[in-house]
Simulated assay, not measured.
Amino acid sequence: MRWTSALAIYFLFWAFSVFFVLPFGVRTSDEAGVARVPGQAESAPHTFQAGKVALRVTIVATILFGLFMLNYHFGWVTPNTVDLFDRLGNEGA
């Protein structure tokens, strides 16, 4: 695999990991014991720490990408392993 392909795949893992990591560690104003701003949603976070989120996302994405590359190298799960339609088609024949 070219390094540019690996970089693009890592970027995809990083982008998808944002949605996985974002909800964790969020505290609302009520949980923080601070008065809400008028018009603020009850579920809005009290503070957003982009650095912490980016670090967590990078850690998760690196672990997932590492597992992906290990699978790419060793071939633990291949398309033939998860090909349900071909298996179902050959059973009736």
Rank of each mutant, 00 (worst) to 15 (best):
A35H: 13
A35R: 13
L70R: 04
V53F: 11
H73M: 11
V34Y: 13
N80Y: 14
G75S: 05
A35T: 12
L22Q: 08
L55W: 14
G51M: 14
D30L: 15
R87T: 14
D83A: 12
V21S: 09
T28K: 07
L64V: 07
K52Q: 07
M69Q: 02
A41G: 05
A54L: 11
G39D: 00
S43W: 11
T28S: 07
V26F: 05
H73E: 05
V18R: 14
D83H: 02
F68M: 02
F68Y: 05
R27S: 12
V53S: 03
F24Q: 05
N80V: 07
E31N: 04
M69F: 14
P38T: 03
V18S: 07
V60W: 15
G66N: 02
L55T: 04
T47E: 13
S17H: 01
D86I: 07
T28F: 02
R87N: 10
G66W: 04
E31T: 01
G33N: 11
R27P: 05
V82E: 08
S17Q: 11
R87Q: 10
V26T: 10
A32S: 10
A54D: 06
G51R: 07
V34H: 04
N71S: 00
F74G: 00
V57E: 01
V37G: 08
A61F: 01
V77Q: 01
L84R: 00
S43M: 14
W76A: 01
V34P: 01
I59P: 06
G39T: 00
F19D: 02
V82T: 09
N80P: 10
F68W: 02
F24C: 13
G89W: 15
L64C: 03
A93T: 12
P23N: 06
A44H: 05
E42S: 06
G39F: 03
T58G: 15
G92N: 15
L70Q: 11
T62Y: 04
S17R: 00
T58A: 12
G25E: 08
P23S: 00
T28E: 07
S29A: 12
V18M: 02
F48N: 06
P23A: 02
F65N: 09
